[in-house]
Every structure is written in structure tokens, then in C-alpha cells.
Design a protein around this nucleic acid. Structure first.
Lengths: 225, 225
DNA sequence: ATTAGTCTTTACAAAATCTTTATACACTTC
DNA sequence: GAAGTGTATAAAGATTTTGTAAAGACTAAT
């Protein structure tokens, strides 16, 4: 019936086995990852309809994995944890988790919450690679290419570029970009942004003096195309 | 800041009071209903952004209310209950509840789950685009097009155009436009406005000498069509 | 401690926009 | 049709905003 695809990211084999059996008897197809790193890689390759993400992982904290996934993955993510710590729950939900379930969970509730979460997936398409003519941005690998040539961008340059690219066609005000990239404290430092737009243009534009990707909207901000 | 509207449906006054205080200190505006029937009526009249629905109600069962609301109400509904009964949870979620929380709930978690639920409402809240024959104005993206070609407008030009377009068909006096765009200090500087109407017409009119969009109302001001 | 890489800050040049002035045109009123 | 009032257009400074280079500050790794 459903044939939805679920990715389990959990380091405990017995939990994975339990989930696998439960989900497969309910017509989900299941893929599994033992570590966060492996989970991100599988998510990028298989684009599952839902991810069950354990908070306690051997390599990275589950919250970190959640944040990384949410850079590009916008389908459902349900967090699982033995921690019923309120702070963790709030953090997970604010970081973009669809739901949060404490272990040991009850099977029927888990299944109901999975159904509920998948139901809301019919939203915008998720894509881990953004392409604009000669520029491509791989959000998973954090690699930006121009005509198949890998560009070397600093962290800040990359953050500015991704923010603009994700809002293709929309004018973003300088204040908004500053707030998103530098934080609320730096909204008046418009000069930072000018410098970084300058270096970005040198790297991604054919002719930096006549930009075709990062367009200046005088008096307001910038627009990506 | 948020100013989202939340409807509480619960028969216990002390719970309502507690929720009211919690929500209002977090910048939500709150309306309350004691019974399911009253809740449905308030939901219809106020179209709140989220409904907190208790499962135990004097007149009808909360599950029933949920089903009735879901016939037409498609924003978030969070169920509250002292029953941590798995069957109830599964039923509620399958009946269309956005989330289910057992009482006594923890405040921070409740607030996080409310934020999470409201966030999903806001997604399809995208474009408001004004269209007038060959001219379209996307207020969110801040982009003006003429026959699918993006026009480059300065800040002031854009402000004047949007003000006129939002009041399509209505005559706006020069003083009013000056006040709105330049501020109260410049209401006598009618010449500014003439210059900007001139440049705007050059950009948006087929024949700027015979304008069809920005019409002069002699002695009064301008009208957009 | 040194170095390489990056970010912040300063200074100035370049571009775009706004304001102001000048003048021409259009419309009403007598 | 002439005078007077209001409107349109062009073009000149004046001002603001943006772009670029480069020096100084910071950070992390060796």
C-alpha cells in the first residue's frame, strides 16, 4: 500500500532490528545506517520519505546530524531518544525535527506518528544539488562547481551563496542576509556583505564587473539568478 | 512579534488560565472555549492559527470535535489529554491531529511543539502577486515584471508603484503619496512626485506619453489601473 | 613562534539615485 | 486667445549607496 521509504539512523543493532521488523510488516521499505555520517550519505543517495534519527550516536551528536540534514532535506525527520530531557526535545523541534519520541516507544504510536509525518511531506521538492546554468551547489558535500570545476570557497562565502541560491529570484535585503549569516548582532555591518559579494563574484561570475548570478538591487539588497 | 492566534478548547478553567498566561507571555493572542460546540463556533469565526483541543469535554468527545473540525479546518490542531492511552493517541493522529501531548505537559515542550505546528501552516503562505495586464508585482520577491521581463526599479520608484497598485482604481492625492513615500516632511514637494511618475511611466508604460497604467487626475493626484 | 588562511576594518573610487532648477507643455478661466 | 495654474521632461549638481583594494586582526595548525 504505502511502499514509503524509511531511513533508520541508530547505532544499536537490536533497536534497528526491532524497527526494521515493525516497519517492514507495515509495508515500509527500510534502509539503515549505523553512524551519522553514513546516515547523511544514505539520505542523499536514497532520498527517503522519512528519517528516524537517534539522538545518541557514536560519531556525532544527533542534533548536529539533524541540523546538517536540514540544510537540504525537507521531508520528515522523527527524533528518537532515551533522553526525555525537555531541553533536548525543544532543541530538536526548533532545529527542524518533525516529531520527537522517547524510547521505549509504543509501536502503534510510533506507526501513527510516522503516518502523520509522512502525510505532510507533499510539500516542496527536496533536492540536495542546486543548479543554475554554469554553477552547481551540492548541499550535502558542500561543494560548489563552475563548469565542473570545483571552486574553493570560505565558510562565509559558502553561507552567503547558499542563502542567496536557496532564495533564487527573490530579493533579499542586506539586513536579512546579515542576520542569517552573521547573526542578529551584525545587521548594521553592511560593509561585510559588500566585501563577500565582491569575492564571491570574482569566483562564480564569468565577468565580475557584469554579474549575471548575484544581482545588486540598489537600496535594498541582492538577488540570485 | 509572532501575534499568532490560538484557540483553547478545554472545560477545566484552571488549565485554560494556565495556558492563557503561558501563551500570552509568548506573544500569542488567545481565545477560549469551554465546550466543543463553542470551540467549533469560535474556530469558524476567528480562524485561529492553531487549536489546542482537550480530549475530555463535557458535551462531545474530543475525537469527535477533531473530526468535525477537520472537515474544513486545515491548520494545526494539537490534542491535549491526561490519557496517555495509546489507542487514543493513534486515533487522534489518524483523525488528523497535528500532534498529541499528554498532561501534565512541560511548558517549554508545549511551546516548541506549538512553534513546530504553526511553522507548517506558514509554508504555503508564499506569493502575493498583483497583476495588471502586462505588469506584475511580486510583493514578497520584490520583483516587478512587464511581459515577463524583470524591470529594474529604484527603491523610491518601487515604493510609489506599489502604493498606487495597492490602491488600484482609487485616486490618490499628491499629498497622500508624498506623505506615504517621502514622509510627513515632504508633503509640499509635489515636484519630486512628478519626476518619479515620469521615470516610472518610461519603464512600465508602452507609450509613456499616453499612459494607460498611471493616470493623471488633474489638480488632485494619480490613479493606477 | 611562525605561517597560511580567513575575517574585519579602513579608505577611497565608482556608480546609482535623489533633489533641484530650468523650461516646455497642457488645460482652465475669463 | 491671453493669463494663470498645474503638469511633464530633461538635465545639472548633490547625495547616497555600492564596489574594490589593501592593511590589520584573528585563528588554527604546524
Amino acid at each position: 500500500m504505502s511502499n514509503h521509504n524509511i531511513l533508520i539512523i541508530d547505532d544499536e543493532p537490536q533497536i534497528r532490528k526491532l524497527l526494521e521488523i515493525t516497519l517492514e510488516t507495515n509495508d515500509y521499505s527500510v534502509i539503515q545506517a549505523e553512524t551519522g555520517k553514513m546516515g547523511i550519505s544514505l539520505a542523499a543517495n536514497y532520498n527517503p520519505d522519512l528519517i528516524l534519527l537517534d539522538i545518541e550516536l557514536p560519531d556525532k551528536n544527533g542534533q548536529q546530524i539533524l541540523t546538517e540534514l536540514r540544510q537540504w532535506y525537507n521531508k520528515a525527520i522523527i527524533m528518537l531518544s532515551v533522553l526525555s530531557n525537555e531541553e533536548e526535545i525543544v532543541k530538536a523541534l526548533d532545529n527542524g525535527a518533525t516529531d520527537y519520541l522517547s524510547k521505549p516507544f509504543r509501536t502503534a504510536e510510533l506507526l501513527a506518528r510516522i503516518r502523520n509525518a509522512i502525510k505532510r511531506n507533499d510539500l516542496p521538492n527536496t533536492n540536495s544539488i542546486l543548479i543554475f546554468n554554469d554553477i552547481s551547489i551540492d548541499l550535502v558535500a558542500r561543494i560548489v562547481k563552475r563548469n565542473d570545476e570545483i571552486l574553493k570557497l570560505t565558510t562565509t562565502e559558502y553561507n552567503v551563496l547558499v542563502l542567496l541560491a536557496k532564495n533564487e529570484g527573490r530579493v533579499l535585503t542586506q539586513q536579512f542576509i546579515l542576520k542569517e549569516v552573521w547573526g542578529v548582532g551584525s545587521q548594521t555591518e553592511a560593509q561585510y556583505l559588500r566585501v563577500f559579494v565582491g569575492t564571491l563574484r570574482k569566483k562564480i561570475e564569468e565577468n565580475p564587473a557584469k554579474p549575471t548570478h548575484i544581482i545588486t538591487e540598489n537600496g535594498i539588497g541582492y538577488r540570485f539568478h
